[in-house]
Design a protein around this nucleic acid. Structure first.
Lengths: 143, 143
DNA sequence: ATATCATTTAAAGTTAACTCTAAGTCAAGT
DNA sequence: ACTTGACTTAGAGTTAACTTTAAATGATAT
């Protein structure tokens, strides 16, 4: 027999590294349609609700806005009729994350160039050590 | 003799893929202390100013907030006395970008798992094909 | 000369995602 | 009985980074 654990809003918040305030905000925005209540109206979170919250965190980590996550949760409520839409959503998220990574790799190169630029400048005690950089670049370019 | 080109605010904006409004906002926030004006108070952007804007775009791409970029520009105005601080800033940016990339790679793995999950569900026409996933995972875990 | 742009400033408005406050209910401990 | 602490709601406030507006000045074309 599987024991079914339930969590209060603050326990759930701690588990998924959010605040109870934020969970209520997500609920209000329609991100948590599956969370049950006691007869007194108090939310009780199941393990499955925690998994949903982990998924929400994951989608947020891809840069997805709350209202788009809400649309996804609406599809989840609709069940198997929206499977294709949900699949497409994750394919799009995948593309988005790949693009973000490639942009960050490009940014990383520029930052690393600046690290070298300032490392040499700090060693020389002045930025003037790079004063002719542009001229050198132009010379190389124009033969 | 090098020809010194100058750009109006809207020309500069187009070059760096921002709007003239945004450039004025950046100027107001202290991000563009080097931009000169005509006798009538009109900004004219040099090639070097465009490079500064590219750098600002690069720092923003690392997730750096405007006020931190302003502090960096303040250090630039102060010249060689703040070389060490500027160097440290880029080292920190480097670490930050590396961290973001590794987090996105982790997120990518989760998303790709969901892609597989929904691909198989779409093929089966129902999510029920994964109904026993958790049980299987538990079985594996507990021997 | 007149119309049409582009530019200037100061300041108000927008959006997302919280974050906090007020006012109240409920269960447990002393 | 009373305090403490967690929970509830509705709604106001916050922050960053723009974005738009208003009112005025300056530059260009016909």
């Amino acid at each position: 027999m599987t024991e079914i654990k339930k969590y209060s809003i603050s326990e759930a918040a701690e588990k998924v590294h959010l605040t109870a305030h934020t969970l209520r905000y997500y609920d209000k925005e329609g991100l948590l349609p599956f969370v049950n209540r006691t007869e007194n109206g108090i939310r009780c979170f199941s393990e499955s609700d925690l998994e949903t919250l982990e998924l929400i965190n994951c989608l947020k980590a891809t840069g997805m806005p709350i209202k788009d996550i809400k649309r996804f949760m609406d599809w989840c409520v609709e069940g198997d009729t929206k499977l294709e839409e949900r699949y497409q959503l994750f394919l799009e998220r995948r593309e988005s994350v790949l693009k973000q990574i490639s942009e960050l790799l490009e940014t990383l190169e520029r930052i690393e160039h600046k690290c070298w630029y300032y490392k040499t400048a700090v060693e020389a005690g002045t930025i003037d050590i790079h004063k002719s950089d542009r001229m050198n670049r132009l010379k190389q370019k124009n033969g």
